[in-house]
């Protein structure tokens, strides 16, 4: 089943849940990097510019770790 899932997803039907998870990980890393660089918490715009996405996307994806658990549960379990 894992194989089929991977195949279907890579075949143009990439699920939002996975793609957002990736962005969410990038946001976490950017936050760490920029905190070290600026010696303070970065702003939403700073992270957005750093990753080349809109500030709203940062907010949306940044919530993924919380909300995806529930999406994951309903969809895949």
């Amino acid at each position: 089943i894992g194989e089929i899932q991977r195949f279907l997803r890579d075949d143009g039907t990439v699920k939002v849940s996975r793609s957002i998870k990736e962005l969410s990980n990038k946001i976490r890393k950017a936050k760490d990097d920029l905190t070290k660089e600026y010696r303070r918490t970065p702003t939403v715009n700073e992270i957005a510019i750093h990753l080349g996405v809109t500030p709203e996307e940062v907010v949306f994806a940044g919530d993924a770790n919380r909300s995806l658990t529930s999406i994951h549960e309903t969809v895949y379990e």
Binding site: R40, T41, P42, N45, I47, P55, D63
Partner: peptide, 21 residues
């Protein structure tokens, strides 16, 4: 979760820190 994100996305216009968000 939808409500959190929506208010957060609206607030993004004021460029909050990640903490404030």
């Amino acid at each position: 979760s939808f409500a959190r994100v929506t208010v957060g996305a609206f607030l993004a216009q004021l460029d909050p820190t990640m903490e404030e968000l």
